[in-house]
């Protein structure tokens, strides 16, 4: 079959074109004025209490709700990972003491994309979270929500054989 014929078959069906779904939503605020939205580890968290500066300065108490890490005497810990935390990660502003989340992300090699004008920060996965897959072929941790609204994690599949398969309408 010639390339043109192949193309005609595909295009004749106008395959998988949903231009009306490109931007179907009415514009609305992502958060209240002055707030910050953080995307991280599959979560979307809105913070109304942040410091001022180039990086994202958060209330240390909010760290856990953002990325699951908890500040402990030995450092910032998540499951079996503990990262030593130095004073350089804290910023004093007046009487407030903030935790510099962007500096922490740099420390653990976690990339981030920020739209500072919209006050939205999107943090990528922590690279070390993939060590077990890259080094030992163990399935990576993930968390998704099914169509019934149930949260499904890798741990939920333990004890069963699982086919994880991706597809798309396209």
């Amino acid at each position: 079959m010639r390339a043109n014929e192949f193309r005609n078959i595909l295009m004749a069906d106008a395959m998988m074109a949903y231009p009306h779904l490109r931007h179907p939503f009415e514009e609305r605020p992502i958060h209240a004025q002055g707030s910050v939205t953080v995307l991280c580890a599959g979560r979307q968290v809105t913070l109304s209490d942040t410091g001022t500066g180039d990086g994202l300065l958060i209330n240390p108490d909010d760290l856990s709700s953002i990325n699951g890490f908890t500040l402990k005497p030995q450092g910032a810990c998540f499951e079996d990972l503990c990262v030593p935390v130095t004073e350089s990660l804290f910023v004093e502003q007046g009487e407030r003491r903030w935790f510099d989340l962007t500096a922490f992300a740099d420390l653990i090699g976690q990339p981030c994309v920020a739209d500072t004008s919209a006050r939205v920060w999107s943090f990528a996965e922590v690279p070390s979270r993939r060590d077990s897959m890259m080094n030992n072929a163990m399935a990576p941790a993930f968390k998704v929500t099914d169509r019934q609204g149930q949260v499904i994690e890798l741990a939920d599949l333990k004890g069963k054989k699982a086919l994880i398969v991706t597809w798309s309408s396209w």
Partner: peptide, 28 residues
């Protein structure tokens, strides 16, 4: 799962669909 953010593809480093992984009872 309707995975609008491509969470599964990102977690498993997939770059195309359909792609899959077989995972045994121990998560391997």
């Amino acid at each position: 799962v309707v995975d609008t953010d491509h969470v599964i593809s990102s977690a498993f480093n997939f770059i195309n669909v359909p792609s899959a992984a077989w995972i045994d009872e121990e998560g391997r």
